[in-house]
Design a protein around this nucleic acid. Sequence first.
DNA 1: AGTGCGATTGACT
DNA 2: GTCAATCGCACTA
Length: 211
Amino acid sequence: MGREDLLKPERRKSFHVPLSRRALPLDTASLAHYLIGTILVRELPEGIVSGTIVETEAYIIGDAAGHAFRGMTKRNRSLFLERGHAYVYLAYGTSFMLNVSSEVPGVGAGVLIRALEPREGIPIMRINRGIERLRDLARGPGRLAAALRIDAELDGCDLCRRGPLWLARGDRKVGEIGQSMRIGISRDADRLLRFYLRGSPYVSGLRSLNQ
DNA sequence: AGTGCGATTGACT
DNA sequence: GTCAATCGCACTA
């Protein structure tokens, strides 16, 4: 390790600590709350891209709005993996969405990652997104997937181990976490299963849902 | 085989 | 504020 690395710990790959699977709450809604303030790390050939998770949604067991509601299919099988695995799917034929599987093996449920506060690799994110504005780089589930170049190839990967995509412990105090209805769904829409960092400009959704 | 509909986004009136 | 893009899946026949 060079002197540069010692002086700038944030540039070291080893700076971030993967989340321990044992530490992940076993309940989907609890996991959605827990993930606020943790760090999503993407390893690309050009370098590390990462962001602090500021918004999530829980799709709990038996949820009529969840993709696992009608049982396992080719697309949603990753939702049934042990908690801490990636479920990536294409929404509207245009945007990839990243979920974290959330229950015991064989039970389908997950947490949708909806927004990040950009952290490392911001120039790479700007190229991936084709825009400049920092606030919009990863504000929205499809946008964050594009910023981190997340696609179906990452479906099923273990997010509790270093690799192409993984989750790391947050290193700052997490602010107040708000709760609201989930965005963009019709069934079971009234349940308060969306979690967000109150006051963060990097959170998506209507202003009325962010108070 | 055909139809309808999304856990969205970006462009446009 | 409206709306099209574009694809996988559920559902019907």
